[in-house]
Amino acid sequence: MRIQLLLTGLLSTSLLFAQRAAVPPTGQQILDRYVKVTGGKAAYDKVKSVTMLGTMEIKGQNVRGEMKMYRIDGGKYYTVVDLPGVGKQEDGSDGTTVWDKTVLGPRLKTGDEKFLAACATGAMSEYQRTATEQDKCYSKTEYSGEETIAGKVYQKVTLTPKLGKPEVQYFDKVSGLLRRTRMILPSPMGEVPIVMVIEEYKTIDGIVTPVKLVNQMGPMEMEMSFSSVRFNEKLPGTLFELPPEIQALVEAEKKPTP
């Protein structure tokens, strides 16, 4: 009888558990879990500057260059990728003007592109803005079910930016870590569908940080691998000043059109 009760109790508990498991998590719960498993909000709040040094490679094409990313609180960032044969491809913001300077020439970013580059202003916003500054960038967060990829189960969260197209983030159901993001990036070349896969994390100063990422764009794959990630390094303010060509564009915009 006791056994029966026990079994009934177990069955009941199991049933109750199953009922609870059937209730899907909210998108916010998944994001909160991500913040927790990667170090917690308090740890994120301590980071005022980020330096990431590594390489960018177009996979299978023998194209590989040095990559440096610097970001500080206040929406200031500077990224440079130096590709052999092509030269420096730069991207930055002084907290007001968002720009890039590539082989195509210098350019000021506007519209959705500017918003998505600048909506988050914290030092950790390059790859962690969902965790740290969700409210500034997104108007809606929804749980979108589970998906199994290569035997792993992912919980999907669809985030709708205040400007731009929704993106879907895939969180490992077991670890809670963000593993991929499917998004449509606005660019001057048009809308570019991208899948960003985070292949490797490392714990740095208590924060589990992405250090190896692969961007899949159509038939091309770009791998970014960071051998050095440092937090709260003192960075010179000049790093985030507008380059002369960008400053010239800003001045030209101020002039009235003839």
Partner: peptide, 15 residues
């Protein structure tokens, strides 16, 4: 036109 991505060959005017 690529599989899954169409990219415009944009021209950025120079000053």
């Amino acid at each position: 036109y690529q599989r899954g991505v169409d990219l415009n060959f944009i021209v950025i005017p120079r000053l």
